[in-house]
Design a protein around this nucleic acid. Structure first.
Length: 802
DNA sequence: ATCCTGAATGCG
DNA sequence: GCATTCAGGATT
């Protein structure tokens, strides 16, 4: 057993397979599947993952593994196998899939160094660059305009060598610890001998005499109000000693989570949790779709199910959409399970993520709560997997590997023979359809906890407002309702959708709209520095004084940003205290929580925000929710537009009247008759499902059909069109007659960063050969993708059609 | 991806 | 005749 099968860190189709390496005496027994190793590959050294240890290879000139990067495997056997499956499913390289399963810091870093081998004189230019040293960075060589031809020559002559280095980025945070070095009477003796002026040193010795335990230097210094120099003196006298102790970076250190206890379940909850608990006890795999209205207490079901899993000594994975956005959720899990919980989300620094991941790897925690990638938590004894807000599109990764966390969850659920719970107030059509077909088990909770009724929803037709002469973005009804709540000292949440609210610049004379010269999209006006910025690339320019087309000075910005809404609102209701939450006000770390806490303490009447306030918020005093433009999502070119609108209105409405006070929701719309708005206002998911399914069926969209979206981009428009046409013809020819190939058409974003984008789409029900064909297409164009700046993107079951 | 090779191209 | 660019091939 001295041969390792290794997947190397070269994401290309030619290298997307295993390479065999000899395990030398030194590493025999130490190398295990799932470890990262450094292997020679051509002239360089690169990182690779060991998949398997065997004693046979068909290849005869094996090289040896150069070094190990891990002491214990970073991928479990299950994850290795999962990676295999996932790379097939998503048409991704093995290496990309494995990298996606691990924290960023475990990705290898590569460095090249030049090493001088002799004292012999080198060509003049080279001597200049080396400047007396015998080794230097290759990067520096290039920066100093090093000549590659000459370098090659001296390498061939054996005067210089290139060293290829592989480095790991991971760092383990260490804390300096201080403790007494000798028996205490030595300290006492030293204390007497210290000079009078050494006040701080005396204090420190007394400190240790009183409490001779190891203490962190940080703690010591703050306790004694002194600096490192005091410690240093005592260290020099050998009275104290220092040591390093590994510590976890703790992003949640300040918070003390009050312990919470299981709540008494409602009848709805009891009925729903029962089948889940049974699956846990019997240890069988089953997918549950937990459809519970907002405020029905889904989280409590998660918590109590997890408790059962923990009682059995098993582990739990909980996925939530971008958890940094819901500190309240973290609080509930940490409150119930304390230090058994690891939290993984995008708000953490790479080092913090690594530390949380290590707690999982070392089995120091039993529960992980995190965003999409937490589905790869290296647990080995999973008892339940929960996906909250399962309809959220953020569970689909938009770059390689293009996986959906739901699919991975179900796959792992089968592996571990454990239940998977998908929870939502507005399940995706895909999931609900599966539940109807009994592929998933449907659990329904139609009532809110505490017998609260669903909030009353009123739809305001904004066209009527306009006819009545109200040209603001707030209807008279909404304004009156806000003022009424403020008088009652109750709070208000106002939601506006960022999409359709960006501000563009147009000439009033000729209608010219300022567009990005590199992308097919209007520029966005930023008031802060009076500049126009492109949403898709780095381009920006100053706000023009005159229209570039007709030189009129009537060029103005249109549309409404959150900032502008805030100003208008303030003008309308001057006494209102407003907190605005959008990307601008929450960019700084922790500011999100700070604003929410302020709002929770009723330091503001109105919380005005975008997507980020749509879910998870739970404030007892909120009795009014306003949706400023409910239909702004309806007009995007996406067959899921109605579904997204329904989900959003439902989620936002759910923020009102969750506790003792009854809630009200006001929805402003220019198309109030649309069924997604009408049915959302009646909290009628079932009829929405029926109606929307009819439309999906008629237009051959999911869940009736599967989609494959192929997007091709290249700087040359003709080239792109030609490639997409070829691809679409190939698909047409080789796929069954039941499938439909649409396109080629320009992508909704037809040009980004000076690259033209065209796409074609396959609609199919059953197409087992499809992946083979797509692989062949990719193989065929591989060369052009490498050398000719051609880009082909294949998304199986896309969620983002742009 | 990156490196090596040898052939094609460009400039004087 | 030289350097520079390009296409093809290999990596255990």
């Amino acid at each position: 057993m001295n041969i390792a099968k290794v997947v190397v860190d070269v994401p290309a189709s030619q290298t997307n397979r295993v390479f065999d390496y000899l395990i030398s005496e030194k590493f025999l027994g130490a190398v295990q599947p799932g470890m990262r190793v450094i292997v020679p590959f051509g002239p360089r050294k690169i990182m690779g993952f060991v998949l398997e240890i065997t004693n046979h290879s068909d290849f005869h000139h094996l090289k040896e593994i150069h070094d190990l990067m891990d002491v214990t495997p970073v991928l479990t056997d299950e994850l290795l196998e999962l990676g295999n499956w996932l790379s097939e499913k998503t048409l991704s390289f093995y290496i990309s899939v494995f990298q996606a399963m691990l924290p960023q810091v475990l990705k290898a870093k590569y460095k090249k160094e030049l090493q001088r081998l002799t004292e012999e004189a080198l060509p003049e230019k080279l001597e200049e660059i080396f400047a007396g040293r015998d080794r230097m960075d290759y990067e520096e060589f290039l920066q100093r305009n090093g000549n590659l031809r000459i370098l090659q020559q001296v390498i061939q002559e054996g005067l210089v060598e290139i060293h290829y280095q592989v480095k790991s980025k991971e760092t383990i945070k260490k804390e300096t610890m201080i403790s007494p070095n000798k028996q205490l009477f030595f300290l006492e003796e030293a204390l007497a001998n210290l000079p009078k002026q050494a006040v701080k040193q005396k204090q420190m010795l007394l400190y240790f005499l009183k409490n001779p335990e190891v203490v962190s230097q940080k703690q010591l210094l703050s306790d004694l109000q002194t600096t490192r120099s005091t410690v240093k003196s005592l260290l020099d006298q050998d009275l104290l000693k220092e040591s390093k102790q590994e510590v976890y970076r703790n992003p949640y250190k300040q918070e003390n989570y009050p312990k919470t206890l299981p709540l008494e379940l409602t009848d709805d909850q009891k009925q729903s949790i029962h089948p889940i608990l049974r699956a846990i006890e019997k240890a069988y795999h089953e997918v549950f779709l937990l459809h519970g209205v907002t405020g029905s207490g889904k989280t409590e079901i998660y918590l109590q199910s997890i408790q059962e899993v923990l009682n059995r000594g098993e582990e739990a994975i909980v996925l939530v959409p971008e958890i940094s956005l819901t500190p309240q959720m973290v609080e509930r899990f940490k409150g119930r399970f304390g230090s058994d919980v690891a939290v993984l989300h995008s708000g953490l620094s790479p080092g913090e993520k690594y530390d949380e991941w290590r707690k999982i790897q070392r089995h120091e925690v039993k529960v992980v709560v995190g965003a999409r990638s937490a589905i790869f938590a290296p647990f080995e004894n999973i008892g339940i997997i929960i996906i909250d807000e399962e309809h959220e599109t953020s569970y689909k990764q938009e770059d390689h590997p293009r996986y959906h966390a739901r699919d991975v969850a179900i796959y792992r659920g089968k592996n571990h023979s454990c239940p998977v719970v998908l929870g939502s107030a507005t399940p995706s059509l895909e999931s609900f359809a599966r539940a109807k077909k009994n592929i998933y088990t449907l659990l329904t909770m139609p009532n809110r906890m505490n017998k609260m009724s669903m909030p009353a929803v009123k739809i305001v037709d904004m066209r009527d407002e306009l006819h009545a002469g109200n040209r603001t973005m707030f209807s008279r009804e909404l304004k009156a309702a806000i003022e009424q709540r403020m008088n009652k000292k109750e709070q208000i949440v106002l939601f506006l959708n960022r999409r359709g609210y960006s501000t563009f610049v147009m000439c009033r004379d000729c209608g010219y709209v300022m567009e990005c010269p590199h992308c097919d999209i209007a520029l966005t006006y930023h008031r802060k520095n009076e500049r126009l910025k492109c949403h898709y690339c780095a381009y920006e320019e100053a706000m023009p004084q005159l229209c570039p087309s007709c030189e009129s000075d009537m060029i103005r910005y249109f549309g409404t940003g959150t900032q502008k809404v805030e100003e208008a609102l303030q003008q309308l209701i001057p006494e209102a205290r407003i907190i605005r939450m959008d990307i601008d006000t929450t960019r700084r770390k922790g500011s999100h929580e700070k604003l929410l806490n302020q709002y929770g303490r009723h330091e503001a009447d109105i919380l005005l925000g975008t997507q980020m306030i749509a879910k998870g918020l739970d404030f007892a005093n909120v009795t009014l929710v306003g949706v400023l433009a409910a239909d702004s999502l309806l007009h995007i070119p996406d067959f899921r537009a109605a579904e997204k609108t329904f989900q959003l209105i439902t989620q936002v409405s759910g923020r009102a009247g969750r506790h003792k006070l009854p809630g009200e929701v006001i929805i402003q719309s220019y198309t109030p008759e649309h069924y997604s708005i009408q049915l959302a206002s009646k909290h009628d998911y079932n009829n929405f499902f029926v109606k929307e399914m009819e439309i999906r069926k008629a237009f051959q969209y999911p869940p009736y059909y599967y989609l494959t979206l192929i997007t091709v981009s290249h700087p040359n428009q003709v080239k792109v069109q030609e490639v997409v046409r070829t691809i679409s013809q190939l698909l047409q020819k080789h796929l069954s007659s039941h499938s439909r190939v649409l396109g080629p058409t320009p992508a909704p974003l037809s040009r980004v960063k000076d690259r033209y984008r065209y796409q074609c789409m396959v609609k199919y029900k059953n197409e087992p050969k499809q992946k083979e064909i797509l692989k062949k297409i990719l193989d065929y164009y591989q060369d052009e993708m490498q050398r000719n700046d051609l880009f082909i993107q294949i998304d199986l079951q896309p969620y983002q059609l742009m």
